[in-house]
């Protein structure tokens, strides 16, 4: 689907009301940016800057309080069913169904799409193979290590070949080596498949490691900087890293990175 993974965010706001007191809490103050089809973007920011809220709005699990968020021209909350097979997410916890084996977990979204059972198995098997899990397709999640479970979750997301792939702190909780390897797999596969990919993280190193565009979020839910690392010479990346760290610490934008 051409342009199906392009994202437009205009004046986006999200406010929650606390249970009991009814007090309004601003999760996203204002966000404006555009992500093109096939782009690879890392969203980085400290805890409480609205990263997960933004992702929930993007998935369509929450309705914006104001402004607009659209994927391929359609809003994920209002046109909820339109996005069946269009987007897939990998979360911080693997969120595998514990009663399903690895292959049955990968099949799950294909079952929801009503794909032919033979195709479901073939495709799930192929993705498990690509993620080095061919030997473990009959294993239940509790029999696998944390890294392997997250790879099953990756296979589940990639299996439907979505136009838009989202990863919400999906690798940060694993050990450094596993985390880096999985992130690399995620980036390589997303590039190979031509998906639009968004990686949400609170770890700046993870964002820089992706080597693409970085959106720096400040509290509460506003854009501090929009940086494309590919436009910066390699010897300047260290300085950019220091600038981002300072922005995140001071929660203030830097005019040199504002588009």
């Amino acid at each position: 689907m051409k342009g199906a993974g392009a994202i437009e965010v205009e004046g986006l706001r999200k406010t929650f009301h606390q249970t009991g007191t009814g007090e309004a809490v601003v999760a996203i103050e204002r966000l404006d940016f555009v992500i093109r089809q096939g782009d690879m973007v890392a969203i980085v920011g400290q805890t409480g800057c609205g990263k997960s809220t933004f992702l929930n709005l993007l998935i369509g699990l929450e309705r914006p309080s104001g402004g607009r968020i659209a994927i391929g021209g359609r809003t994920p909350y209002d046109d909820f069913d339109h996005f069946r097979g269009v987007l897939a997410a990998v979360f911080q916890q693997d969120r595998l169904l514990p009663w399903r084996t690895a292959i049955d977990n990968v099949r799950l979204p294909l079952e929801l799409l009503g794909r032919d059972p033979r195709e479901q198995i073939e495709r799930a098997r192929a993705w498990l193979g690509r993620l080095d899990l061919a030997r473990f397709e009959r294993a239940y999640p509790h029999e696998l290590s944390g890294g392997m479970r997250q790879r099953v979750a990756l296979a589940r997301a990639f299996a439907i070949e979505p136009a838009l792939l989202l990863a919400d702190e999906a690798f940060g909780h694993l050990d450094e080596v596993t985390s880096a390897a999985l992130r690399r797999t995620f980036v390589d596969l997303a590039r190979m498949e031509g998906n639009t990919a968004i990686l949400v993280t609170h770890q700046l190193e993870e964002a820089i490691d992706m080597g693409g565009r970085i959106l720096v979020f400040g509290r509460p839910g506003r854009l501090l900087a929009d940086i494309d690392l590919r436009t910066w010479p390699a010897d300047k990346v260290g300085r950019v890293r220091a600038d981002i760290q300072r922005m995140m610490h001071e929660n203030q934008p830097d005019p040199q990175f504002t588009t």
């Binding site: 699990l61 996005f83 897939a88 969120r95 169904l97 079952e111 929801l112």
Partner: peptide, 23 residues
């Protein structure tokens, strides 16, 4: 967590029930 995961894949009401809630 599991409900949000499944909803992100846009299941029908029947699928939501048979693939997640019932098992």
């Amino acid at each position: 967590d599991l409900r949000d995961m499944l909803r992100s894949f846009r299941p029908s009401r029947t699928h939501f029930f048979t693939k997640l809630v019932l098992p």
